[in-house]
Every structure is written in structure tokens, then in C-alpha cells.
Design a protein around this nucleic acid. Structure first.
Lengths: 123, 123
DNA sequence: TTGCTATATTGACAACCATCAATATATCCT
DNA sequence: AGGATATATTGATGGTTGTCAATATAGCAA
């Protein structure tokens, strides 16, 4: 092996020959489902904005703040907050009539590492 | 500042006081939509598995390989391949009657950096 | 108590998505 | 040409998702 990378193209099977053999799935269906569920959770513009707002205003954001900052009605804000809470990415604390929401950073870190793990293996 | 983290809780606004002020959206709707569109693309178990298979078998995977490796029918495989291709994450090359698919690593790298950028800011 | 405000829930509706059978297209082989 | 194989497309169907109006719940204030 020299430092110059040799122009070897690995061809375990010639183009045009019999195919449909030897290709296996390294990423299990269970793992794929787990990750895709979490990605679905953040793959929505409003939820991305909510997470961004919460992350940048730790513990100081109530629902009406979000309603004022986002282009959706209160019921819809509550709906997305519920999804994020059920997905374990955020939680809230009630103080009087207000509910103050905040991110759960360990959960976000886990998600980041999981996603980064795959994406780094790919590119 | 000592090594002991002081138990100071930042309270720019007392709990229970008037809220709905001063909270702004740093992540623009346009940016959120762009990212969520790309996340949607990979937020599906089959598409995650397809990307993983393609990334680990550079240039050597035809549709019937995928059909054999995945729990879905050929029409559905083609459907997901089309979405991934239209999203710019993969492409294909025809050799005879086979279509060999492969990932577009620069696009995956861009996506990784974009996602990592936000997630790193959050956790 | 009565009324006001903040938040959650319910129910309805439209839009979107995943899947497959059937069919079309294209390429190879004889 | 005719048959076989690989892939793409179409159309139908069932399921999921996002949104909102209306309503419910709960705390606060007078």
C-alpha cells in the first residue's frame, strides 16, 4: 500500500451479471423504526421552531409566548407541545396559570448522537 | 466564578407575571421548512434502510437487491427510490436492464451539517 | 361566587403518505 | 419477431397528520 490511493474500483459482481445476492441490511428494521420515529418528531417546521425557541430561552417560555411567535393557533401549539412532550424531548412545569416549557437536553443529545452516527457513516 | 456552579436561576421575568413578550423566533420559517423537508425525507424506516444499504455498497446495488433485502414490494421500493432521487440524496445509472443506485455523498454531508448545526445548538 | 385568563382536549375535516396490484416500458436473449 | 426479466408508473385504498373551532379545565382576581 502506497500513499497514493490506487484507482481500484471494487466490483464483487460485474455489471450486467446476475444480481439480487449478497446485499444485506446492516441497519435493522427495529433500529430504523426507532430512529425514524424520532426524526419524524423533529421533521416539522413548527416543531423545529418550538424546539429552537425553547432551547434559546431555557425555562422561560409559556404557551402564549409560542402562540405569539408562531403562525398557528393556540390549539395547534398545544398539540405540537404534546407530541414533543410524549416524545420525551421537552417537558413543562406549571406556575399559576402558566405552563413553562423547556427542552430536555439529555434526550436531544441522545438524538443528535444517534442521527450523527448514521449520517457520519454515510458521508 | 468558582468551580462550584452557583445555584443561580436566571429569571428575566418572574414566574406568574405578564408573559407573551420578548420571545422571538431565531429560526426563520423558511429555514425550518427547508430543514424539515429534508428530515422528512430520511424520517422513514425503509428510506433509512435504503440509504444505509446504498452507502455501504457504493454503486453496486440494483433495485432487485433492495427488493430482496427489504420487507416491501418492488413498486414500493421504486417509489422510495424516486423520492430519495428527487430529494437529491441518491442517483442511479443504468447498465443493461439493471439500475444501479448510489448515494450522493456531498448532499448527505450538507444535510448532516445542517442538522448537526441545530442539534448542537440545542444540547 | 362570578368572571377572566391560560392551557388542554375533543371532534371534524382536508391534505398528505405508504402500500400494492396491475400495467407500461425497456432491455436482453433466442 | 417473441418471450423473459428489471424497473417505472398509474390508480386505488387505508391510514396518518396538521389544523382549527368549540369546549373543557383550572387558577387567579375581584
Amino acid at each position: 500500500m502506497t500513499i497514493d490511493t490506487p484507482m481500484v474500483i471494487i466490483e464483487p459482481r460485474a455489471f450486467g451479471s446476475r444480481c439480487c445476492e449478497g446485499v444485506t441490511v446492516d441497519l435493522s428494521l427495529a433500529d430504523a423504526q426507532l430512529l425514524s420515529t424520532q426524526l419524524q418528531l423533529i421533521a416539522h417546521p413548527v416543531r423545529l421552531q418550538i424546539l429552537d425557541i425553547l432551547a434559546r430561552n431555557a425555562g422561560q417560555v409559556c404557551v402564549c409566548d409560542l402562540e405569539a411567535a408562531l403562525p398557528i393557533k393556540q390549539a395547534t401549539v398545544s398539540h405540537h407541545l404534546r407530541l414533543l412532550r410524549e416524545g420525551g424531548l421537552i417537558d413543562c412545569e406549571r406556575h399559576g396559570q402558566w405552563a413553562y416549557y423547556f427542552t430536555l437536553q439529555p434526550a436531544l443529545a441522545v438524538l443528535r448522537e444517534r442521527a450523527l452516527g448514521l449520517l457520519s457513516a454515510w458521508a
